[in-house]
Design a protein around this nucleic acid. Structure first.
Lengths: 212, 212, 212, 212
DNA sequence: GATGAATGAGCCTTCATTCAT
DNA sequence: GATGAATGAAGGCTCATTCAT
């Protein structure tokens, strides 16, 4: 992210080494972040997992704050990339495509990056600084979903207040890791599919509406 | 030991004072808890807001842990009472009654007790101890909603996997205060109504199901 | 100690009441002192055992320090009284009389006031203030023993450096409660007799002296 | 992890530095421990004497508890080593050899390690945990003395109940630093010799026993 | 005389951060 | 580039002491 951005000659061996180390650190930090939460992540634990000293982390990140922020960015990038792949790979009705996105997001959030949900939930207890950054990062993610939703609305397939439904979708989707915690992997897949199906209803008009 | 043994009508002036103070502390603690989160809540800050010293809190609660637990219990009790009132006061279709409950919950969560949402969201990074307690406290709350949902399912009005829909409902509902943060009160009411309507869809069969 | 010292008319009922309370407090404090040691004694625990509040203790003693000092004085008075009774009641050789005193002291120290030993040991870790007081209090106690010892020396029955033997005697005697801790009462009596006999040797010339 | 794995001859400069610091800390802690006692020893005071911050101590010891334990172990090791040297170096009657041991112990306790006495006195008010440890550590020390004593008993030179005499010996011996506190060095040597001689009497049969 | 309330000072512990080597 | 050392600030908790009622 730093060295690659340079426009100069081929990145020196030392620069590549540094980038690899940065990636390692980010990965370890993301792990700790997932397991212990924002407030539970200590530099000591991150360093321990890398067989490094806490002090050494400061060669790569000027502060804990920057490390966490970089983690968020990495997670967001990963998520958005995967989602964009998903979005690009499918065709069909808006509902079908939205369903795929939801399932992809659940997959990530449940199986690989339970901490990722925090990024999208804007946790109330994070310092304002991080909330701002994560809000910014979320916009892109949001847009992937919203473009499908808007399409569905335009085509008449969906019938909703976009903001309202999107918020409900996000709230439910990102709470899933809490719900699933500790379940067996098999169950998780079944459940995730059911959850996704149910969430689609937020966008579809109900058969008999008592509150349309 | 003496006052508490009395049959009730005369809780000595001192006891009333103490109760009021306990309530004040719980309120302040709940505020801090909701603003800073579990790990961010320090006894110093709670005490500061009450013009007290940290040490003074220990006259009312034997430990930080007990204080937090008492907050959870108080909030849960408040919420369950209000919901039960709501549930008892309405008649109509299951959808109508569920709608009322959702609106009641949103009302509380958005207007009066934004802290309350935390109780139902079980943040991933709280110590297991508290997650257990809050899970236990939530059961009662959950049951009020579920009884209406089950009724709707039995009557054929609703058509869902109860667990799946309930979880989605909770996730979305309790994320609302995050979403609404900083909005004007007028908007909030409108929004809440729309959110409630949209959430009802989770339980109603969609007009045309494009997902098997 | 305060009221009784007054030269005025019969101590009013209120004064007697106060004295009784002071005695109760001293007794409770001495108990805690024995069980928890000087540093482990807290006003809270003393008050608890009396069904009082910590604050109430301050009606009778101006500070923790004064309470502890009063305890020491009480213990010393008790010990000295008992020893003087013993000393007055016996006749016989110096060795016989010293043996009685030792047994009396062991009896007190082991059975009734394990904390009393601290008074005579001048614990290294007590604040200087208390060490001075306890040293003063010990003089009287010491003198009871020494008068018998000096007599034995004068009569030729004993053959020792008074200071040296006295110190060794005190050190050994007051360490007994540590040694006996947790033993059964029966054993304690047997042991105490043996200990006393052995300690007498400090004063008697050895049969074959390789170091006289 | 790296340096410790080496076979010994080259404990990197940094390791040596650390060891020296650990030794310094242990020394300072032992001092404070002996002056203020277990409960009176604060990490702040230990740190102060080393021109360190309390927090820095945690680089070397994970907790106050471990620091105290390490002190006990260090003192015990030192004492036992010295005594074993003494025991190995002397010949002669049991009384002569026991006399040497007593003098050696007094020498250490009075001149170099006044803290050491605490290790052997097992103060009543230390938490059970430490009393257990120090009791265990004392066993070895005890055994050095007892082997000589048992030999003297076997050969008929001594005539005592081993346990009783040993306890009296320990009580008297370890109380010496309290007694000597503040005396001039010259006097101390004379005194110590007299104390040792007197203590030997505990093991020798008295010339005329007036106590059955 | 008794007590609940409040507090300041002190303790142990954790942690992000700095710096010399 | 890496690390051990050191630290300041903060957090939870205890306790002797004061004071108004």
């Amino acid at each position: 992210m730093t060295a690659e951005a340079r426009s100069g000659p081929a990145p020196s061996r030392v620069a590549r080494r540094r980038d690899r180390k940065v990636a390692d650190i980010l990965s370890a930090a993301a792990d700790v972040l997932s397991e212990r939460g924002f407030h539970g992540m200590s530099l000591d634990e991150v360093a321990d997992r890398l067989d490094l000293t806490k002090a050494s982390l400061y060669h790569y990140f000027p502060s804990r704050e920057e490390l966490v922020s970089a983690c968020l960015e990495t997670l967001a990038t990963t998520a958005n990339e995967r989602l964009r792949q998903t979005a690009g790979a499918v065709s069909g009705t808006a509902a079908e495509r939205l369903g795929m996105l939801i399932r992809a997001q659940l997959d990530m959030v449940v199986r690989e990056y339970p901490q990722m949900a925090r990024l999208f939930l804007q946790p109330l207890d994070w310092p304002e600084l991080y909330r701002q950054r994560s809000r910014a990062l979320r916009v892109e993610h949001d847009e992937i979903f919203r473009s499908v939703v808007r399409e569905g609305i335009r085509s008449g397939e969906f019938n909703v207040d976009e903001d309202v439904a999107m918020h409900n979708l996000y709230g439910a989707m990102n709470n899933v890791p809490v719900w699933f915690r500790g379940r067996r992997k098999k169950d998780v897949d079944d459940m995730a599919a059911k959850v996704a199906d149910n969430l689609l209803r937020l966008f579809l008009p109900p058969a008999s509406s008592s509150s349309a």
